[in-house]
């Protein structure tokens, strides 16, 4: 029986290609798992209302700074009522402060400015400040937050 040699090259190529892709696939999967190990997954979110005290504790025209389980918020009381904003600047995550004279929220990092409704009016911030819902039950104020 004649030995056919003309497909040795092809056979070798195919076998090496299969092994090569297999190896790459295996190493790639391993690398992906290693990256997944390094990237922590976000914890489950729970929504809850947190008691922040009586409305009278917040002076008119001023903002009280609070840290509710990692959420840094400012509770602002104006003629229109009480509102709660996240202090996290929507630009790059610095903390805004309330300026009573200018009636604006200011971010010191890159000079972002928000008005008293949280709207971004100057500087780099791309969107308004995040708002938290404020619920009034009797004299007491509650802020709805997502807690981790």
């Amino acid at each position: 029986m004649a030995v056919i040699h003309d497909d040795i090259g092809r056979r070798r190529f195919l076998s090496q290609a299969v092994m090569g892709f297999g190896l790459l696939f295996g190493l790639g999967t391993l690398a992906l798992r290693f990256i997944q190990f390094l990237v922590p997954s976000p914890g489950p979110k729970r929504v809850g209302a947190v008691l922040i005290g009586a409305e009278s504790r917040v002076p008119m025209g001023e903002a009280v700074s609070l840290d509710l389980s990692g959420h840094k918020i400012l509770v602002l009381r104006t003629d229109e009522g009480v509102v709660a904003f996240s202090r996290r600047c929507t630009d790059l995550g610095c903390l805004v402060s309330w300026n009573k004279e200018r009636e604006q929220f200011l971010c010191p990092c890159h000079q972002g400015v928000f008005d008293k409704t949280g709207r971004n009016i100057a500087g780099p911030p791309p969107r308004p400040l995040d708002r938290f819902e404020v619920v009034k039950r009797g004299e007491h104020l509650y802020v709805s937050i997502q807690s981790v």
Partner: peptide
């Protein structure tokens, strides 16, 4: 990044 809007910068 202070002077230009975020995505542009």
């Amino acid at each position: 990044i202070t002077l230009l809007p975020g995505p542009v910068a």
